[in-house]
Design a binder for these strands. Sequence first.
RNA 1: GGGUGAGUAGCUCAGCUGGUUAGAGCGCACGGUUCACAUCCGUGAGGUCGGGGGUUCGAGUCCCUCCUCGCCCA
Length: 893
Amino acid sequence: MPEFTLPKTYDFRDAEQRLYRWWEENGWFKPENARNPDGKPFVISIPPPNVTGVLHQGHALFVALEDLMIRYHRMKGRAALWVPGTDHAGIATQLQVEKKLLAEGKSREEIGREAFLKECWDWTHKHHDRIISQLKRLGASCDWDRERFTLDEGLSRAVREAFVRLYRMGLIYRDEYIVNWSPGLQTAVSDVEVEYTEEQGTLYYFKYPIAGHDISEGPGKGYIPVATTRPETILGDTAVAVHPDDERYRHLIGKTALVPILNRPIPIIHDSYVDMAFGTGALKITPGHDPNDFEIGRRHGLQVINIMNKDATLNENAGPYAGLDRFEARKRLWKDMKQAGLVIKEEPYVIQAPRSQRGGEIIEPLVSKQWFVNVKPMAEMGLAAVRTGRIQIIPKRFEKIYFNWLENIRPWCISRQLWWGHRIPVWYGPDGREFAAHSEEEARALAEEHYGHPVDLEQDPDVLDTWFSSGLWPFSTLGWPDDTPDLRRFYPTDVLETGYDILFFWVARMIMQGLLYTNDIPFHTVYLHGLVRDEHGRKMSKTYGNVVDPIEVMDDYGADALRFTLLTGSTPGNDMNLSIDRIRANRNFANKIWNATRFVLGNLPEDFTYRGAPDPAALQTPDKWVLHRLNETIANATRLIDSYQFGEAGRQIYDFLWSDFADWYIEAAKPRLRGDDPDPVRQTLVYVLDQTLRLLHPYIPYVTEELWQHIPHTEDDTPALIIAAWPESRPEFHFPHQAEAFEHLRQVVRAIRNARSEYNVEPGRKIAAVIDAPTYGESLAAMRDILALLARLDPDQITFGPAPEGEKGAALVVADATIFLPLGGMVDIEAELARLRKQLAETEKRIASTQARLNNPNFVQKAPEKVVNQARQTLADLQAQQARLREQIDALS
RNA sequence: GGGUGAGUAGCUCAGCUGGUUAGAGCGCACGGUUCACAUCCGUGAGGUCGGGGGUUCGAGUCCCUCCUCGCCCA
């Protein structure tokens, strides 16, 4: 027995690190070292993870998908480039650093901007290596020499360039506008950073007094009834609005109302925005604290009163409520109004509460001076790019969502009252005049030109929304705004792969900004994946305790098992449920490949020479069958991967390796390896294994590479699987007839195994068989040894021909054969008859339905010929089977 | 309110452009120390594909409608 060079089970712990380092040291992640370095590039920009984040399943999924694409195209001969990097994640990082400072008893205000930024950089450097090494562990074959950070020097330059260009195009402006204010974070956030949750609230009905009247005069005279969900905003009201057609209130238009408690006079106006059916039909207008009211206020030239401080306490405009928290003020005001007889009623009401995506607290709409991008012109370009098919989104249904968002796009608030981020490149002169510039020097020059003499400038204290810099990612990472060799060669990129949850945040903005700045699409395909949930479809959350940590999974089962599970368990755009059971099953799959390889290697002699694709002339039926199946698998997998159906492709390769190659071909190979002419079998074993490892490599890179290093190769093979060629179907291995013959052998074997199991034949006992197979008898006879091994028959007692008359035994009827097992007394005639009759009934049922189809003239006329012929063939087979079943039944009864 | 996804075996999911008897993993039952693998092998049970209607020679797959759950937008 040959000695095994491989241990009995696959130890991924040792292999993963070693292989990754080896790949990286050899430069195989770099497009320059592709098999065809000058060939067509294939480029993906990584969705940059938060530099201070910790790896979660979302990362694991995107790495699995993107690494699959990169490795696949690398093997196909493209100059594959995966550009890695991290994101500075403004709010997230700043919060973490502030938390750390708090623990040390300090605050950012105390230590000042400069010192705080230094803390942020320290924090960034400290955490950078962790997230990067975690990505590497998953097998990400990124070109790390090209790694970027959204706040590095080059990208910062790109951000300033983009800002200044937009500014000079008139698309960036500063405005007093109602924004989403996060009192906890003390900054404005953009529309997409606000999430609306349904919550139980209250609708408060009250009386808006009319000047010159007494409330006792009743509704429509002394007061106008109004409803609101946020009573404290009454203090900022600057009008009451009614619908112009509303008979109830039309006569009040133009009159004056008095703000409760404050007694501030405000006009009663009309606006068709008012919904007559909602509440009382009259609407209080608070331009300072409601986005819709803000718009109405602008239409009517209403005053904007801000009643709130940045921390959501009320300010001096709130009169007696100044200093109170917003919710406390609500209670107090309502109580006071009750005492003043202004309250009508309260009723429970489900509100859509705006909450901060990051902090979770209630967002307060308030007016402040912020920087905005007028995205409309870019949105038009972004819409056209997808409409015309220059960019395709997978799955396609997301295109509609994308269109909908872009068609209704609103100005993008890009300023954040944070310190960690790209500081807005605008300097103000002594009179407040803005100078947008690439640098302070440039701003000074501009200012001097304007004022005629040097002046002191002050830079805007705010920073830009993180997504502003991420929106430049595909080209900024390649060197933009400079015209670098990388930008020329690798831009536009190919596929942008990310979660559907950031279609608006990121993808749409990259498309828009790419089109605007580079005059080209940033990528031609957007592949969107779903969320990774727990095994029962619940969102993973730390508080719920159902987080499946990718690091722990990799510790326990290996990176390959995790990757394969994520890849085969998901379909584009749909959420997936991740279970440990599945990961375990895929760990077993890796072990299966390991052991199949051990078998192959263990059966090769010392002096074995591998000659590549086997010589068809030397092959027998099982070889031809497996090669034929390999061809099919290669064709299917390639087609499926090309159409982004990675899961289905992976499952097909899995089935081929396990169910075809390991369960049948290897088993069938065993007797022949001990025979006179083992070489063709050995050649086929190595060849099929080699090809299958190639097919699996993009899915499970580690175990495949490890094994590939152990199997024999031809001289012209590459030194590593990672850069080896992707398999192609070979016409000379197209063997439909032999494939069918082997399929027939499988049927016969299964039938015999089934009978043995049913009759409780001891597993070790070798039995005799008489096989009557009109079409495949010869090929079965040629595979006698294989048949004997697989069905545990005595090779010397396999005979071909009709079953002996009058002998006791089991008669098995399959598609093209009748098998007689002379089991003598083990067989109960009655049971045997029952079994055959049951099979006959099933066969006849199928005959009836097939017959019915063929008797239908419409079917014969309208169905494709191929389908009709197939039905005819099926019917003939079934009828033959029926005849043989009847024969057997007659013989027994 | 608008849009969208899901509902297939006990559980978790596949099922591409409609075409034989709807698949997998796990679980379950029975049996296995077959010299690659018990992280394994063999055999088996288990589904009127959410309900109803329609198109079609033919529907898990296309259309309509309803029910349940989820997500996005307003």
